[in-house]
Computed example of a mutant assay.
Amino acid sequence: MKKKILITGAKGFFGTRFINRYQNEFEIAGLDVQQLDITDKSAVDTTFAEFKPDYVIHAAAIAVTDFCNKHPDVAHKVNVQGAINVANACKANGSKLVFISTEQVFNGNEEAGPYSELDTPVPDTVYGQNKLEAERELKSILDEMWILRFTWLFGLPERYTTINPNVVWNTLQALTNGEVMQERRNEFRGLTYVHELIEQFPKIFTIPYGTYHTGAHNPASRYDIAEHILSELGQKERLPELLNANDAPKTRDVRLDTSKLADQGVVFTESKDAITKCLKEFHFV
């Protein structure tokens, strides 16, 4: 008998690809806001009681930083209270929860990354603050839970999936539209190929419960990554006309130390190599 997975945020970049990959291996209820308002506790309780999921992947969130900063009440209702509703429904139905969090919980830390799970997050955006508050609230509700703090996922458009702004897609769009890219040499983030994460996801259901930093190691800056992508696309000689450095006033480094997850056998290709892998899989190189 197939295990049941309920995934919120099912129409998102991660959710659509996850469902495409595992729809024949699991019984999946893919729900987005049109099917389930996670801020409606009664609706959440009813949906969970009817489906009775073995696992829940809670990926639904308002993740647009500017929107959250401008509308903190709305963001809190979805990102915190909605997550609490999901966790309580998991507890009532014996479902194991995967809560998707973010590297942005470290966005206000003064020291540079990579950050381990033992480092104290200091979020300085409403979205980061919401996610950290939700992490704490959910841990007080559930014991059977994994918190995955994602790095920035990248990938390319595919049939029946959505696309998010990401480093590879942004570069291809700029190149197609004849735009000069403006990238920072003093911004550092983890960059993870979405399919490399999805392919390993069932392993996560087998590891000890807890908080895990999730994704690829990336020593390169945003500028270095853009330079790498353009070079892989055969544009190395044109780099001066395609790419400009536009450094921020302050260095930003929100990279995550993912060695705790690697110790459990969930490992990722370093970002530059993963980007090359993606471009090859889609036959750009």
Score class of each variant (00 low, 15 high):
T8I: 07
A10H: 14
F13R: 06
F14L: 15
G15W: 01
G15M: 06
G15Y: 03
T16A: 05
R21L: 07
R21Q: 12
Q23T: 00
N24P: 04
E25Y: 05
E27K: 13
I28R: 10
G30P: 07
G30E: 02
G30Q: 03
D32V: 08
V33I: 15
Q35Y: 12
Q35F: 06
L36T: 06
L36P: 11
L36H: 04
D37P: 08
D37C: 08
T39K: 11
D40E: 04
S42E: 15
S42C: 12
A43H: 08
A43P: 03
D45K: 11
D45R: 13
F48W: 05
A49V: 04
F51M: 02
D54A: 13
D54M: 12
V56Y: 06
V56N: 12
V56S: 10
I57K: 12
H58V: 09
H58I: 13
A59R: 00
A60E: 05
A61C: 02
A61L: 00
V64L: 04
T65N: 13
T65K: 14
T65G: 02
D66V: 08
D66L: 13
F67Y: 15
F67W: 10
F67S: 04
F67P: 11
C68W: 03
K70A: 15
H71W: 02
P72G: 07
P72R: 12
P72C: 12
V74C: 10
V74P: 03
V74S: 09
H76V: 06
H76D: 10
K77Y: 03
K77M: 11
K77H: 13
N79C: 01
N79E: 03
A83D: 00
I84G: 03
I84C: 10
N85A: 09
A89H: 04
K91Y: 08
A92L: 03
N93D: 06
N93L: 09
G94F: 02
S95F: 03
S95K: 07
L97G: 11
F99K: 01
S101N: 04
E103Y: 14
Q104W: 06
Q104K: 06
V105H: 02
F106C: 00
G108S: 06
N109L: 01
N109V: 02
E111Q: 14
E111K: 12
E111I: 09
G113A: 08
P114L: 07
E117D: 13
L118Y: 08
T120A: 10
T120H: 09
P121K: 02
P123R: 05
D124P: 01
T125Y: 03
V126F: 05
V126H: 06
Y127C: 13
N130Q: 03
K131M: 03
K131L: 01
E133P: 00
